[in-house]
């Protein structure tokens, strides 16, 4: 046989072998898994994403959240660590971290497209994050993760929120965040000493009055001292801006709707038992 022919046939065969083994066989094994019903009358699990949540999945996909977050809970026998107090090796970090009630199995993903299992855990696993937080928490966290965890290295997605002038009354959807977080969306803001002096000169009495009115047991602030000024600054930073509000864009609403549907690791599937 000609050298070219040998090469062609060999390359074809080796490659086909891996295609059969790693692609076609799993495909044949896992394709067409039906959703699960414990009783014929029960609602099937899982269900396809719909409406807003589906749009939110698209936002998740195109923002590349997957490059920091996985969506899979591994078995309670996976991975190990040394438990100092009892002097023993133990296994199964994912469930013990509270990321899910059980491991995830192929059936949890039958309606996922794309299936974003993820390969990196710069942030926590999100398979079951829908059970952990409220919509409001998710909005504030997405807007700026450091509003909750100052150590977070998750990017802020402030561009999914719109800062607008309040016309009439504040919108119900507006994020209840202090001006510390809203003056420069995506960043954390603080006035310099000089700026704060200026603000105090212009609005000092007003800020002090509202401080006294809103704080149940107000300290006796002395605005002549540095400490008093600082204390008032903290209060003021935590209050919302008077004329501005931050509202979620439809994309942010969708993203949060998606995050709330993420409950992949709790429905008791028989095959997920260990």
């Amino acid at each position: 046989m000609d050298r070219g022919m040998v090469l062609f046939v060999g390359a074809l065969l080796t490659f086909t072998s891996s295609w059969l083994g790693l692609v076609l066989f799993p495909f044949w094994q896992l394709q067409n898994q039906p959703p699960y019903r414990s009783e014929p009358t029960d609602d099937p699990y899982p269900r396809p994403l719909q409406g807003l949540a589906w749009v939110g999945m698209k936002v998740y996909q195109q923002s590349g959240c997957m490059y920091c977050h996985s969506q899979q809970i591994r078995s309670d026998r996976f991975g190990n660590w040394w438990e100092e107090p009892i002097g023993m090796m133990r296994t199964g970090g994912d469930i013990k971290r509270g990321w899910g009630l059980r491991r995830t199995v192929p059936r949890d993903y039958i309606y996922d497209y794309p299936t974003m299992l993820g390969t990196m855990r710069t942030g926590p696993d999100l398979s079951n994050v829908g059970s952990r937080y409220s919509a409001l928490w998710q909005h504030i966290h997405t807007y700026n993760p450091r509003a909750f965890n100052n150590w977070s290295i998750m990017p802020s997605f402030a561009y999914l929120y719109r800062k607008e002038k309040i016309v009439g009354s504040r919108s119900e959807k507006a994020l209840p965040l202090g001006r510390e977080w809203t003056v420069h969306p995506g960043y954390r803001w603080r006035p310099s000493e000089a700026e704060w002096e200026l603000i105090l000169r212009e609005q000092g009495t007003y800020i002090l009055t509202s401080y006294l009115a809103e704080t149940p047991q107000p300290d006796n602030l002395n605005l002549a001292t540095l400490q008093g000024k600082r204390q008032l600054l903290e209060y003021w930073l935590a209050t919302p801006e008077e004329d501005w509000q931050l509202v979620p864009t439809p994309q942010a609403e969708a993203l949060v709707a998606y995050l709330l549907t993420l409950r992949k690791a709790e429905y008791p599937l028989p095959e997920a038992k260990e």
């Binding site: 070219g4 090469l7 062609f8 390359a11 074809l12 490659f15 295609w19 790693l22 692609v23 799993p26 495909f27 896992l30 394709q31 067409n32 898994q33 192929p106 059936r107 993903y109 039958i110 309606y111 996922d112 497209y113 794309p114 299936t115 299992l117």
Partner: peptide, 30 residues
């Protein structure tokens, strides 16, 4: 020769099965 033979095939098969006629669930990551 092997590389230029494998790669177009690999890319075509993978994109067809993931994007153009998507397979379900965890077969995609596989």
């Amino acid at each position: 020769l092997a590389a230029v033979f494998w790669f177009p095939w690999l890319y075509t098969v993978a994109t067809l099965m993931i994007f153009w006629t998507p397979v379900t669930g965890v077969v995609q990551p596989v």
